[in-house]
Design a protein around this nucleic acid. Structure first.
Lengths: 233, 233
DNA sequence: CAGGTTAATATGTATAGACATAATAGCAAC
DNA sequence: GTTGCTATTATGTCTATACATATTAACCTG
């Protein structure tokens, strides 16, 4: 029986991960069941369970009832990204933030926006185009479609001092959403707004958020060159 | 006392999240402590704890000992990306995968690579350049620096049929790493390899992985236009 | 042997009770 | 008033036990 420095699910997790890293248990191998491990570590099964659940969440092991736990064959790494409100992201870097609403209009939904929001093509949507600045320099260009049906005052809803982004986050807690990351060449308009050469490579995020079955908003953010998302594995 | 359809931490979680969504508890509000909630839901405190821990992991609430649990003021959304081996990613889309090793050489570390790997500039590193294909079309261009000191056979290590990517994942379980996502215009060489026009916007990932204190590899992957990462929030 | 039923098994989760830990608030001493 | 101790409080975690559930293996039937 090994004597861990301090009992606790984290030390169990560390020891298990160490055995995987040292290839004592190789990819594809089945590892002992929770009860045996609990006995070996001198702790309760629940503690081993917590450690194993955490390893499974990290993609290190795969678990199936009855079949047991085995070391992942091709460890799919899972990276967790934090996606803060733009203002917070800018201010976290010690820069000042401001934004400018470029346009606000009710428009028939473009095909793409309609598809993403799950409304009929041509349905009346509120479209907002916003430019975000960091230390006075253009930081990101936002093209947002909003579903007026879910806004408290419909298309006339005022966001006050907040960007639509932040207002929604604070006032329309959503239960579902998806996000995609890609790259795109700056078009003429985007290039002008962001102050870069046409064709510059922009990092782009596209997000759609839903509340229950109702689409709230679909937004495309094009970031100025140099922008990068960074995270630990 | 509310009677949840079926007791369980997931239904507790759902109810708590519902109250946040319906703004019964607004951002910044403190919510009842675990004991009171457990009494209200007619379950054990551990069950409420599990639900609340999960909500905290999702960024919905913030928890501090003694201070209690409060609804996050600016809900930082956390997206979890799966980062599979390229082969798996391609094959998951029903396409055939192959790769071609373009070059393999021992080179003095470029400044950038040296900094990322934490070795002296000019240190001898193994550099591998690989092109990955999906259904015969170029999919991604990989530029990788490897630290021979951590490879079992040094710079002469053979990867067999596997790409360096996959070989490393299978044989060099690592404990740490980081990844960054950005966009870049295709240079002349990249454009030629990927079969796109020079200047095309490419989605780029840069990854560095470590084992303990030793750098294993730093790799830059440039994906052909159209590539996107997608995930749910 | 095919096919379906049953038993065994490993994980998933719940519970009550206990102690650990961190952070706050209040009080006391200087 | 400020500093430092102490009590209080909410979360963090562990234990032991129990039952639920999914899945596999074994068995039994036709």
């Amino acid at each position: 029986m090994i004597a861990p420095a301090r009992n606790g699910w984290e030390s169990v997790r560390a020891e298990l991960l160490g055995r995987i890293a040292r290839r004592i248990w190789k990819p594809g191998d089945s590892i002992p069941n929770e009860e045996d491990l609990a006995y070996e570590f001198g702790c309760a099964r629940a503690t081993v369970n917590r450690a194993l659940r955490d390893l499974a969440a990290g993609g290190y092991v795969e678990r199936r009832r009855k079949a047991g736990t085995r070391v992942a064959l091709t460890p799919v790494r899972r990276a967790t990204l934090s996606i803060p409100v733009l203002r917070v992201e800018v201010e976290a870097g010690g820069r000042s933030y401001r934004f400018a609403e470029l346009s606000r209009a009710i428009e028939p939904a473009a095909d793409l926006a309609a598809a993403r929001l799950g409304v009929a093509a041509g349905a009346a949507l509120l479209r907002l185009r916003t430019l975000h600045f960091a230390d006075g320099a253009p930081f990101a260009f936002e093209d947002r479609w909003l579903n007026p049906a879910v806004l408290p005052d419909g298309a006339a809803t005022e966001f006050g001092d907040l960007s639509a982004n932040e207002w929604l986050v604070r006032n329309m807690a959503f239960s579902q959403g998806d996000i995609a990351f890609t790259a795109a060449n700056a078009g003429a308009e985007e290039a002008g707004l962001l102050g870069v050469a046409p064709g510059a490579a922009l990092f782009v995020t596209e997000r759609t958020t839903w509340r229950q079955d109702q689409a709230i908003t679909a937004v495309r953010l094009a970031f100025a060159p140099g922008y990068r998302i960074h995270t630990n594995l």
